[in-house]
C-alpha cells in the first residue's frame, strides 16, 4: 500500500514536471503580452521532434559517424534542442504575432492566429514526416534504484530535478536580472515601458526564447520518458498545462510551477482510484472547483479596478 503510494507520488511529480515546464512558457508569454499562446503545446511537440533528429544524427543515423556515448549525446541534445525550439518560437512571434500587434488588432485575433499556428505545426509535421510514429532513441541507460519495494528510475529523478532546477534558474532571471525586471515592468504597464527607453521588442523576443526553450526541454524530457512521438502529442498536454498555469495564477511563474505539479498530482490520484477514462472528468472538475474558490488562482493577485 505504502509502496504504491510512493510510486504514485513519484509518477505525479514526473507528470507535474512536464506540466510545470510547459505552464512556465504559457505564463511567461501571458505575463508579458496578455497573449494566450495556444501554439505553445505544439512547440513542445516540435521540441521533441527536434531532439529526436539531433540525437539520431549524433547517434549516427544519418550517415554521420557515431563517436559519442549516449550521455554525451544527451548533453549535446539538450542545449541544441532548447536553442532550436526557441528559434521556432521566436519565428512565430516575428512573422505571426508581432505584425498583428503592430496593426493594433484585437488581442483575440492574435490568440486565433496562435491556434492556427498550432494547427500548422501539427499537420505540417504530419505532412512532412508522414503518419509513421517515431521511436525516440534510448540515450541513457536505465538504472533502477530500489527502495524497499519501490522502484525509481534515474530518468524519473532526472526529470523532476531538471524541472526544479529550471524553475530556480527562471526565477533568478525574472527577479534578479535587468531583462527579467523589464519583463515584469511590461506586464505592469506596457505603455510606460518604451518611454523609459526599454527596447520592448527585444524583451518580448527574450520572453519567447525563455518560454520556447522551456517547451523544448519539456519535449526532450517527455520523449525520454514516453519515447513514441506523434504530431498531436503536444496538443492535449498543452491545453492542460495552460489550465494548470491559470490555476496557479497566470502571469506568475511560481503559480505556473505549482499549478503544473497540482495538475500532475490530481491526475495521478484520480487514476489511482478511478478507471483511467475518468481522469479528465475528475481532474478538470477539481481544477474548476479550485478556480471557483480562488478566482485569481493560487498565486494570482486580484487587480483592483480604478475609476
Amino acid at each position: 500500500m505504502f509502496d504504491t503510494l510512493l510510486q504514485n507520488i513519484l509518477n505525479a511529480l514526473q507528470w507535474g514536471s512536464f506540466y510545470s515546464l510547459i505552464a512556465l512558457g504559457y505564463t511567461l508569454v501571458y505575463g508579458v503580452l496578455r497573449l494566450i499562446n495556444f501554439a505553445h503545446g505544439d512547440i513542445v511537440m516540435v521540441g521533441a521532434y527536434i531532439a529526436f533528429f539531433i540525437s539520431s544524427l549524433l547517434l549516427g543515423q544519418y550517415g554521420m559517424p557515431a563517436f559519442l556515448p549516449g550521455w554525451a549525446v544527451l548533453a549535446l541534445t539538450i542545449p541544441l534542442t532548447m536553442a532550436l525550439t526557441s528559434v521556432v518560437g521566436v519565428t512565430l512571434e516575428r512573422i505571426a504575432y508581432r505584425p498583428l500587434r503592430r496593426k493594433g488588432a484585437n488581442r483575440l485575433y492574435v490568440v486565433i492566429t496562435a491556434l492556427m499556428a498550432g494547427l500548422i505545426l501539427e499537420n505540417g509535421n504530419l505532412l512532412v514526416l508522414g503518419a509513421s510514429r517515431k521511436k525516440f532513441p534510448e540515450l541513457i541507460e536505465k538504472v533502477v534504484y530500489k527502495f524497499g519495494s519501490t522502484y525509481v528510475t534515474n530518468l524519473k529523478i532526472g526529470v523532476i530535478l531538471t524541472a526544479i532546477l529550471s524553475f530556480i534558474g527562471l526565477h533568478f532571471i525574472i527577479t534578479r536580472t535587468k531583462v527579467g525586471m523589464a519583463m515584469r515592468a511590461i506586464s505592469y504597464d506596457k505603455f510606460a515601458v518604451p518611454l523609459m527607453g526599454i527596447p520592448i521588442d527585444t524583451v518580448i523576443v527574450f520572453t519567447f526564447v525563455l518560454g520556447s526553450s522551456m517547451a523544448g526541454l519539456a519535449g526532450i524530457l517527455f520523449a525520454l520518458s514516453y519515447p513514441i512521438l506523434d504530431p498531436y502529442m503536444g496538443m492535449s498536454i498543452g491545453w492542460k498545462a495552460f489550465i494548470a498555469a491559470v490555476v496557479g495564477g497566470i502571469g506568475d511563474i511560481r503559480g505556473a510551477f505549482a499549478g503544473g505539479f497540482i495538475l500532475g498530482i490530481i491526475e495521478i490520484s484520480v487514476v489511482a482510484v478511478f478507471p483511467s477514462s475518468y481522469r479528465d472528468l475528475i481532474a478538470f472538475s477539481i481544477l474548476l472547483l479550485i478556480l471557483t474558490i480562488r478566482p485569481t488562482g493560487l498565486f494570482g493577485v486580484a487587480q483592483t479596478t480604478k475609476i
Binding site: 494566450i36 472538475s285 481544477l287 474548476l288
Partner: peptide, 22 residues
C-alpha cells in the same frame, strides 16, 4: 463571474473536456 479576463477561456476549455469525458 468571480473571475476576470481570460478566465472564461479556461473555464470553457475545461468544461469542454468535462462534457466529452462525461
Amino acid at each position: 463571474f468571480r473571475t476576470r479576463d481570460d478566465y472564461l477561456a479556461i473555464i470553457t476549455i475545461a468544461a469542454n473536456y468535462i462534457i466529452i469525458s462525461t
